[in-house]
Every structure is written in structure tokens, then in C-alpha cells.
Amino acid sequence: MSSIPAAPAALRLFRYVAIAEACSWAGLLAGMYFKYIAATGDLGVKIFGPVHGALFVLYVLGALAAGRTARWSTGTIALGLACAIPPFTSLWFERRMSARLATTGPATAA
């Protein structure tokens, strides 16, 4: 048995959404390449644009829920929300918060 307790559901969901949001960024960036650089069509943007938009909203909601569950400070929550904007930074933030949770526990992972 592990000495680290299982993460609450909100934190697990946040992890999954952060990973999915980063993957949708990759798809959207690839679609934008084919639309604007290679000029071969906009199918990728038509597919990944709405997917990324939905995952962006889920990431914001997940960050708020995870912040409440783990008792993150307001600054940490603001950083998590800001990390939804640049590509792939949601992964960095999620890994950072997971590492803090693993070493300090949810109440002090701010």
C-alpha cells in the first residue's frame, strides 16, 4: 500500500482535463498550421477549435474546483487560470500542483 492517500476526485478530474486541454492545443495548433501555413484546408481548426474551447472551459472549472478542494491560495488559483491561455502550460501547472500535493498534502499545497 502507498503511504500517500489517493487524490480527491476534483484533483483527479483536474489532472485529466489539464492533459486533455494540452492535447487539444496540439490538435488546434496543427490545424492552424495546415489552414494558414500549408494552406491545405481548415478541417483541423473546425474539429479542434470547438473541442479546445470546451476543454478550456472545463479546465477553468476544474482549476476552481481543485483549488477549493486543495485549499490553494487565491494567487495559486489565479496562476492556474492564467496557465489555461498559453499552449501546454496547463500541464506544467498540473504537474506542479500534483508534486506539491504529494509532498505536503492538500491543505498546504498552495
Rank of each mutant, 00 (worst) to 15 (best):
L81Y: 00
T108P: 03
R71V: 06
Y36H: 11
A6N: 14
T104S: 09
P87W: 13
I37R: 14
G49Y: 05
K46T: 09
T76N: 04
L28A: 11
A9S: 10
H52G: 04
P50R: 02
G41T: 05
M32N: 11
K46R: 15
T69Q: 02
A54V: 08
G41R: 09
A63I: 03
Y36Q: 15
F34D: 12
A39Q: 12
F88G: 01
Y33F: 13
A107L: 10
A18V: 00
G49L: 05
V17R: 07
D42C: 06
G27Y: 10
I37Y: 14
C23W: 15
I4L: 08
R100Q: 07
M32Q: 15
S90W: 02
S98H: 12
A20D: 05
E21M: 04
Y16Q: 08
A26Q: 13
R68S: 05
L28N: 04
L55A: 13
M97I: 05
A63K: 00
S24N: 09
I77Q: 01
A84I: 04
K46H: 11
A99R: 13
Y16T: 15
P106Q: 02
C23K: 09
F93K: 04
S90A: 04
F14T: 05
S98P: 08
A65D: 04
R12H: 06
A9R: 11
A84E: 00
A102P: 00
D42M: 07
A78P: 05
D42K: 03
G53R: 12
R68M: 06
S2L: 03
Y59M: 06
R12V: 10
S3F: 15
L81P: 01
L55R: 08
G75F: 00
L101S: 03
A9Y: 14
K46P: 15
P87H: 04
T89Q: 06
A18C: 13
L13S: 11
A30L: 10
A22F: 05
I19A: 09
T89V: 08
A102L: 04
A18M: 02
M1P: 12
K46Y: 09
W72E: 02
Y16A: 14
A20N: 14
P50Q: 07
T76D: 02
M32L: 15
A66I: 00
I85T: 15
R71K: 05
L11D: 11
G62T: 01
T74R: 07
V51I: 14
S2V: 10
R71N: 07
A107Q: 07
L28D: 03
I77M: 01
E94I: 09
I47G: 09
I4K: 10
G27W: 00
S98M: 13
G67Q: 01
L13V: 12
L58G: 01
F88L: 10
A66D: 00
V57T: 08
A7C: 09
F34E: 08
F56T: 07
T104Q: 10
P8D: 09
R68K: 08
A18P: 06
G75Y: 06
R100I: 01
R15V: 07
G67R: 03
M1C: 12
T104P: 08
S73E: 03
A66L: 03
A39I: 13
A39C: 13
T108L: 05
R68C: 03
L11T: 09
F34N: 11
A6D: 15
A38G: 07
Y33C: 06
A84S: 15
